[in-house]
Write a protein that binds this DNA or RNA. Structure first.
Lengths: 145, 145
DNA sequence: GTCCCTGCAAATGGTTTGCAGGCGG
DNA sequence: CCGCCTGCAAACCATTTGCAGGGAC
């Protein structure tokens, strides 16, 4: 995976879209930049510096960043949205293997479904077909308590 | 797909687990029995006969039925749980192709992921690995408005 | 100076729960 | 009869929104 851009470059990407590189937004991007795994809104909010932003602001920021394709939203099936920072120009398509005991997450690099995707699309006459796929299981650490 | 059991047989399955075959539960099973596609709680509730049950009762019933493996829960990514009736002894594993415009659902019979599943499991040392996979696209009807 | 953003608080929508009475087995 | 179930209402949790003041450019 390509390394993420530095904070100044991320801020630049915001300004390029006539969006403001405000304090809370830079904090959020910095938090995501340090994380290999998807973070929930609550986790991001908790990692914010003291008084560094409001929960509603985090929600609004994630919406904005998602719309700009600067972050990608993942649904790990527990009713909580999670986000990962995107490398510019990458669509961030990949999957996760989630431990159902400790909620730990492993990134799965390969995506093996694109061929199936086109088969599913043509068989049913659908266009613009995408997919969501996540794996669940019990991680090594949780197998021996 | 094997046809679903009749209502008496479904009621029998409840009693076998010392659960009561009450009015609301039978109504819910009857509604699901007629449906090929997953139904949301709201949809089930709306299909109930006049005064045939409370919304909370539907939630509680779906929980119970899911625990008994009489229904399967699906998450189509819109924050609403949906349910399908299960044939006894079947785990109901399959996937859906969802139209992002009209929310129509096509059932995808084959599951082609089980081999990948074991590969993902052994590579990462996980046990009991399962997966969730749903496809999204634009259905034929919605392509020509 | 102009809008975009923020903080606060209240609203929303899906889902869960506490409680007292009711019905199935 | 006993305990599982139900209806009603209130609680919960993630997320969204209205509003007025404040800051980035």
């Amino acid at each position: 995976m390509r390394p993420h851009a530095g904070l100044p470059e991320l801020a630049e990407r915001l300004r390029r879209c006539s969006r403001k590189a405000t304090g809370p937004r830079q904090s959020i991007l910095e938090i995501l930049r340090r994380q290999a795994h998807p973070l929930s809104i609550k986790e991001i909010f908790a990692a914010l510096p003291e008084g560094g932003g409001d929960l509603a602001t985090v929600y609004r920021s994630m919406h904005l960043l998602e719309g700009m394709a600067m972050v990608k939203r993942f649904d790990l099936g527990d009713g909580v949205a999670r986000f990962e920072l995107l490398v510019e120009g990458d669509d961030g398509h990949h999957h996760h293997l989630v431990c159902t005991r400790c909620a730990g997450v492993v990134e799965i690099e390969d995506c093996f479904i694109h061929e199936l995707e086109s088969r599913v699309a043509s068989r049913n006459g659908f266009k613009a077909v995408t997919h969501k796929l996540e794996f669940f299981g019990i991680c090594p650490a949780c197998q021996n308590p």
